[in-house]
Design a protein around this nucleic acid. Sequence first.
DNA 1: CAAACAATATTGGATGTCCCACCTTCTGTT
DNA 2: AACAGAAGGTGGGACATCCAATATTGTTTG
Lengths: 241, 241
Amino acid sequence: MTTSGVASQARFSAQARLRALQADIMDLILDRELEAGDPLPTENELAMVLGVGRNTLRESLKVLQALGVVEIRHGFGMFVAPSNFDALTDGLTFRGRLSLRHKGDEALELVDVRQALESGLIGNAMDTMTSGQLAAVEESVVLMEELAAAGEAFVEADAEFHRRLFEPLNNALLISLLAVFWKVYRQIHVEVGAGAEDLAAVAAAHRRIYEAVAKGDKALAAERLNRHFDGIRNRIYQVVG
Amino acid sequence: MTTSGVASQARFSAQARLRALQADIMDLILDRELEAGDPLPTENELAMVLGVGRNTLRESLKVLQALGVVEIRHGFGMFVAPSNFDALTDGLTFRGRLSLRHKGDEALELVDVRQALESGLIGNAMDTMTSGQLAAVEESVVLMEELAAAGEAFVEADAEFHRRLFEPLNNALLISLLAVFWKVYRQIHVEVGAGAEDLAAVAAAHRRIYEAVAKGDKALAAERLNRHFDGIRNRIYQVVG
DNA sequence: CAAACAATATTGGATGTCCCACCTTCTGTT
DNA sequence: AACAGAAGGTGGGACATCCAATATTGTTTG
């Protein structure tokens, strides 16, 4: 039933045929019960099996690579890939930058979703957070404060803070999504050139969030996360007027 | 600074070059201040400008199409596209199906994220929900009940219920993400072949959610949404357990 | 004059072929 | 035994060529 011949004469639109080809490749992986890391047939072999030209096949393969389905290693082969959300990052970043030229709607929507995820899940994360994980969060706060005192930006420490905050949930998909939103926001932020922010104030806001988490006060932690995101949202507002 | 020559001799990895080409195309769109719906140069022209072969360019364009950045219309041209998350859907669906062959981790993670978004945002949605929107939600409930009474599955009505629930937030990105998670879950569900579920019970669960929303009780609505997702999670457990 | 039809130009869709770049593995020498 | 180099196989990339779809233009026809 699967691996339905894409090469059949069907009068599908071009886009539908491309997606059908992608589906056929994915079905082939599932049919052969390949797992992450397993090798796929060579390009020529796949093109033969699926009944399409090599260039056509490559177009689909590159899409699947971007989707994190396959990993392509030059001179070695193609393999079933572990999760990868780089593609989503790129796409959303572009959307966000494009929207900033107008009303910034998409950029704001992105912040809204990230806020919903973080403030909505902080309670769950606190439920299973170990003392070691809590210490790691504070470590990020301290690093941010040190960098702020030195007048240096702390993009990486900021990202690390949020990542560690939700590590206890043990949800790779969530971590990936948050990373995507973080990267997109950061790119937009760079684009906007908002370099004049108060580093110390940002670091302090993160410490307040940490303190609420350390106290075990879920409502307060969610509230302070919301305040943090309000600040981010305001920065975007300032740019798009 | 933008549109850096990808064709330069740099010894980047193949994947990095592909992504650089994609970035160049997106930069070109931003540099020329094109907006959604505006036409892009032809394939040949773009290949010329970016200094790559047409097949190489096409591979990048297909990726951008999958990411919802450009829209390609056979025989007409290429245009800056409106948002499109079909690609994300496909990739996540594949991941979920693949994970079901083992422990189902990714499928469960997906449900967790969807649950976090819905139960975390239901309060915000209720804040701005109009009476008309509330009526639309009930309409979906009634439809589900009718279909359940007739013994028919109500996949579409179920999806519509959740979509309408969060329409008040006016966040296209969120709606898209929820739609993605819904489709992925549905595909996994079909794959799993869990057809023997109690339609009436599912419809009743949705009515209880609606009633909590109608009463304006945010905590209760969130609680009942959580119960609903617990049921979904259990169904996945039954399959992979 | 207007509507319907047909020819054409333009654009993307697809394939085959050729050569290059990269990685692994084998093999032979030291 | 260890290292170096050769060899084979893989994906990367560029053309050239033809196919297919769409919109436009021009002609025909009522």
